[in-house]
């Protein structure tokens, strides 16, 4: 059912009402980390989808988005890899690809923007996809689950679905870079003063904690480049969150999650102990919506988040 769209009909902006949004059937791009070391993210996303009545159709033959690294060696490869993924979504009749990772969001949107803004680049990508009989028509938009929750479900509706409000749990939002910056690629909200996560935390009964680190980098992408760098960046950010009263952190990005959850033990020497548990976005929302806590993989975290829930008498 794919049709070729004229350039002016193509929308890379995230505000278009997609066909997928109307039918509640979305293309789903879990990304590498949700399939490898953060399987609990994948599972809790599926449980949340069921709860809110949407169908996430996994693009099982999709490749890695390029994760900011492939761009370092070749200017075209991320664009063509992602064009291949979008072609798969189109072939399934889906025009909305949902991600659960800030890095995937940013890089897939950047690739899509490049493709849709230039006939030449789209033709170049299709020239390569054509070698194995695929074609991208330019009908796909890429969004993060966070935006889907707010745009397609709505905060008011979400609020109505909450059966286990978070009882004022003080949650520090940690956006990660690529879901907000650069604004020319994401543009869903202000990158300097984002508030989507705060709004979501409030909707599920928590209290958002404001701190300067919420839009700063977690250091994941350079954790292997030089020892000690990522822990230092994690410590700096978590210190600010802790000092402002946070009991837990929520992030839309599994890479941020790995860094924040994994490196607080290493950052303690320089920044003092912070020990803030880090929830994946769908975990905490699903929990508030009544998905049983023991199905959310909370025991898979290095800093066990169940303590924060017990302290607020949310679980026993």
């Amino acid at each position: 059912m794919t049709t070729t769209l004229l350039p002016e009909e193509r929308a890379i902006d995230s505000h278009r009402k997609s066909h997928s949004a109307q039918t509640r059937r979305y293309g789903f791009f879990p990304g590498c980390v949700a399939k490898e070391s953060c399987k609990e993210l994948f599972n809790s996303t599926m449980l949340l989808a069921e709860k809110i009545g949407i169908e996430l159709i996994e693009l099982t033959a999709a490749s890695c988005c390029g994760a900011s690294v492939v761009n370092d060696t070749n200017r075209d490869v991320a664009r063509v890899l992602n064009a291949r993924t979008y072609a798969q979504a189109e072939a399934l009749g889906l025009d909305d690809v949902i991600t659960i990772c800030s890095t995937c969001t940013g890089h897939m949107r950047a690739a899509n923007k490049e493709l849709l803004e230039s006939e030449e680049r789209l033709a170049h990508a299709n020239g390569i996809l054509g070698k194995f009989g695929a074609k991208y028509n330019g009908s796909v938009m890429v969004r993060h689950l966070l935006w889907l929750l707010i745009d397609d479900i709505g905060l008011d509706n979400l609020k109505k679905m909450v059966v286990r409000p978070l009882n004022g749990l003080k949650v520090a939002p940690f956006y990660g870079c690529h879901i907000i910056r650069p604004e020319s690629v994401n543009g869903w909200e202000s990158a300097r003063q984002p508030h989507s996560l705060e709004d979501l935390i409030t909707a599920i009964g928590g209290e958002p904690v404001d701190y300067a680190g919420k839009t700063r980098c977690c250091g994941f992408h350079i954790q292997l480049e030089k020892d000690g760098i990522a822990p230092a960046m994690v410590g700096q950010n978590m210190r600010m969150a802790k000092d402002n009263g946070a009991e837990a952190v929520i992030t839309p990005c599994p890479l941020c999650h790995l860094a924040l959850d994994g490196y607080q033990a290493d950052s303690a020497a320089r920044w003092g102990r912070t020990d803030l548990p880090t929830f994946h976005l769908p975990q905490l929302v699903a929990f508030a919506l009544g998905v049983p806590a023991d199905t959310l993989g909370l025991n898979k975290h290095i800093i066990d988040p169940r303590g924060a829930l017990v302290a607020r008498e949310l679980i026993s």
């Binding site: 590498c32 994760a67 492939v70 490869v77």
Partner: peptide
Amino acid sequence: RGPRHALVVNKTIRQTGMLQETEV
């Protein structure tokens, strides 16, 4: 490490389609 990182990421994506964390 920087160039090695970039190239091994490319290698694992080429081999498996995914960024293979252990290998990287």
